[in-house]
Nucleic acid binder design. Sequence first.
DNA 1: CCAAATTTCTCCAGCGTTGTAGACATTGAC
DNA 2: GTCAATGTCTACAACGCTGGAGAAATTTGG
Lengths: 342, 342
Amino acid sequence: MDTMTIPAAPAPRTQVTRKDVARYAGVSTAVVSYVVNGGPKKVAPATEAKVQEAIRQLGYRPNAAARALKLGSSETIGLVIPDNSNPFFSMLAHAVEDAAGALGYALVLTNSDGNLAKERRNIRNLAARQVDGVVLASVLFEPELADLEAAEIPSVLLSHSGSSAGVTTVGVDLAKGARTAVEHLISHGHTNIGLAMGTTTGNEADAREEGWVQALRDAGLPEGPIARSAFTRVGGYAAGQRLLASGHRPTAIFASSDMQAIGILRALHEAGLSVPGDIALASFDGSEDAEYSWPTLTTVEQPVRDMAEAAVRALVGADRGAPAQHRVFPTKLLVRQSCGCP
Amino acid sequence: MDTMTIPAAPAPRTQVTRKDVARYAGVSTAVVSYVVNGGPKKVAPATEAKVQEAIRQLGYRPNAAARALKLGSSETIGLVIPDNSNPFFSMLAHAVEDAAGALGYALVLTNSDGNLAKERRNIRNLAARQVDGVVLASVLFEPELADLEAAEIPSVLLSHSGSSAGVTTVGVDLAKGARTAVEHLISHGHTNIGLAMGTTTGNEADAREEGWVQALRDAGLPEGPIARSAFTRVGGYAAGQRLLASGHRPTAIFASSDMQAIGILRALHEAGLSVPGDIALASFDGSEDAEYSWPTLTTVEQPVRDMAEAAVRALVGADRGAPAQHRVFPTKLLVRQSCGCP
DNA sequence: CCAAATTTCTCCAGCGTTGTAGACATTGAC
DNA sequence: GTCAATGTCTACAACGCTGGAGAAATTTGG
């Protein structure tokens, strides 16, 4: 339109304010406020109609920044995820956004790409933005939480891994879920079951590994080979190749994430192995990818939507202000083709 | 901690303000401001050090809401995507977040789930939040843009589909990309090439269909069967089944998205057909899924990161304020297994 | 050593909003 | 007709921040 304006100009946004509406409707700004948020005072129906009309005519929308400043709440929650390209986390993000949206909150998404410095920056940024709470999905380094505590911003850990002190966590029983899957594999007669695990992030040992160990031990079986990699397709691909190359090649593999399983699948295909014929496979997460791979993956489903909802509620919903708790949701083994069920 | 507080209390957040820092450092608040944002006035090094120390000691972070109110800019951009569970869009979201982050902007993610009312609500919400710009990925219904225009919020269409007036758009040449893929299929000797298309969203015809038609016509081939479905795995699965059931079963299929191709792959596998042996397949998007399917998918890659960057720049970067333009990025055919290349 | 120039700092208004305190109308009771 | 009890509305002071106008302190030149 006006290509002549100097781009450097910081956008002189014109806004319809409460004052404009008040003037247009011939009332004071407080009345407009009452009409908009239903204040403690009553407004005469006739006046209310006038104000509503003025709002419509002028296209008034309350300025969220001013509101946030005054109210000390931005009606926004933050989400920190380590890797948005991982379908499990985008599923999570989607679920958190829905849960937040249902409560009238918007979502600020930040992605730390598994980078500690970035995670720290993101958390600080969210704190400065007066978010009403933040959901931390698989936080890399818990001490970062101090920033949030300092700002008195409620946070919840929505996470693969375990439970920390003081802060509310929402998760699943990783060990139990993993054990279920491995036991299922064992029930098919496998005696050499490999494990594709994530690289421990310094955090704490991943309970899925524990579950695998338990299942094997309970069945009196020896531990199969282990390959560690990132929770990605590429990582799984490499892990798969390593497992195949291992001296005592397993006849079944438990992967700690669907993404890794997808990568393993590729490695197996390329090696000319059939799944589950030559090697059976089971994984963890229950993402949609596991339903559309070939063969389809037997996987341990996490009730992502329920978890997200619980997390958001703990932050800004009914459960706000409740003492820190650790909610553990049940997992469910989705039996499909890759495990070799008849 | 204090489980006795009444949960209904609206979080009496205590905040360290500029005033606290000023008092602590023994200066006025303006000086603090200058130190923080490097104002037009110079601050003596000694004073600056004192203030920095005070900031550190007190753990001061500027209140973003107040800043946004004063400056009329929230250092935030909004993103509206139709479906976050679609990997293509989560890839896009990731790229947009990165591009925005690089410029110091945060990202508010909203998801409209292909729901028009939700999209409208999201756009309004973003407008109220004083975002500095919004990236609309595949907007369902363009008239919604009026809300943004009214609020004088810059927007850009980052989209599969074509170009609209007034507003800047960033995209790829869908027709050309599709044609490349179909021509590749033709070069393998296929004469009956089916199409899995999206359901037109009322918007305008999808240019990928046009590309398919052009390629066939240029080669003097008849149009193969068409199946329309959502851009999802499930949609593709159904589309695949329909294409197989069609009277004159195609020997190759062009799918307008990787997701649909993944679904089609499943339908073909279930029908006991081999790919590319019995039926060749090519698709569109270039998402990572296409690299880890079995067989791997030949697909038309969209330079998502470049596109996201261009979109963000048009909003808040160097290109801000430039007249509306239509940037078209080149696509690239990634040849893999599903097309039947030797 | 004084005035002028320069550097460094302070005051304060205002961004759009909310809600409290109180003003002004209106009504009903006597 | 007067007074109190409502019912509606207005004025105004924050919320934390920025930046222009100008005051105070410091340096410079003669």
